[in-house]
Amino acid sequence: MSYRIVKIHLDKSKPEMERSITKIQLSDGTIENVSDVVQYINDELIYYFKTIEGETAVVNVVYPSQKKGYQPPYICTENSRKVLNGHNMMDLPRF
């Protein structure tokens, strides 16, 4: 099953980047925490969004290096630089 992300919510205490996304809103209005989305992607559900150019972009999970202490996994855009001309989830509206 696949789920379309239409909006993102950021942790305002962190720099504006994909790892600062704390919640997402789906096309049906459902709001999900990133920690849940990480688990769902690991369970092989597909999350995606549409770029401003109409391209479909798949969302992946990143597991940061733990060299500087624990950092939770986060979601990011798959191949954003190569495939999507640098577009990523940060282009989505905020809520």
Rank of each mutant, 00 (worst) to 15 (best):
N85P: 02
N85K: 11
I41A: 03
Q39T: 12
Q66K: 03
D36K: 10
S27N: 12
D28Q: 08
P73C: 02
E32I: 10
D28L: 10
V62R: 09
I24V: 15
L45P: 00
I46Q: 15
M17H: 03
Q25P: 00
V83W: 06
E32V: 07
R81C: 06
V38P: 04
N60V: 12
A57F: 05
R94E: 14
I46R: 13
E55W: 11
V61D: 02
E32R: 07
V62D: 09
S13N: 09
Y40I: 09
I24G: 10
V62G: 00
V37S: 09
K23L: 01
K23E: 15
V6W: 03
V34G: 07
G69C: 02
E18N: 01
L45W: 05
F95S: 04
M1H: 02
N42M: 14
S35Q: 06
S20W: 03
N42C: 09
G54L: 15
D11E: 09
R94L: 13
V34P: 06
S35W: 06
A57Y: 05
V37P: 05
S20L: 03
L45M: 13
P73L: 08
E78G: 00
Y48R: 05
S80Y: 14
I8V: 12
G86Y: 09
P15Y: 09
K67A: 07
I31Y: 11
E18G: 01
K12W: 04
I46P: 05
K12G: 03
V61Q: 04
H87S: 07
M89H: 11
T51I: 13
Q71D: 07
K82W: 06
I41S: 05
D11L: 06
D28M: 10
E32P: 00
D91H: 03
R4C: 12
I24H: 09
K68D: 14
I24C: 10
V34L: 13
T30L: 08
G29N: 07
N60Q: 15
N88S: 13
K23P: 01
V58P: 00
N85E: 13
L45Q: 13
V6I: 14
S35H: 04
P15Q: 05
M1K: 06
I21G: 04
G54E: 15
F95M: 08
Q71V: 01
G69R: 02
M90N: 08
G54T: 05
N79E: 13
V34E: 15
Y48D: 11
K67D: 10
K67N: 03
I46N: 12
M89T: 08
K82A: 14
I24M: 14
R4M: 08
E18Y: 01
E78C: 06
V61C: 04
G54I: 12
L10E: 04
K7T: 02
L45A: 09
Y40T: 08
T56M: 14
R19I: 00
S65I: 03
R94Y: 11
K50A: 12
E16T: 01
K14N: 01
Q39P: 01
E78T: 05
I24S: 08
Y3D: 10
Y3L: 13
V59M: 12
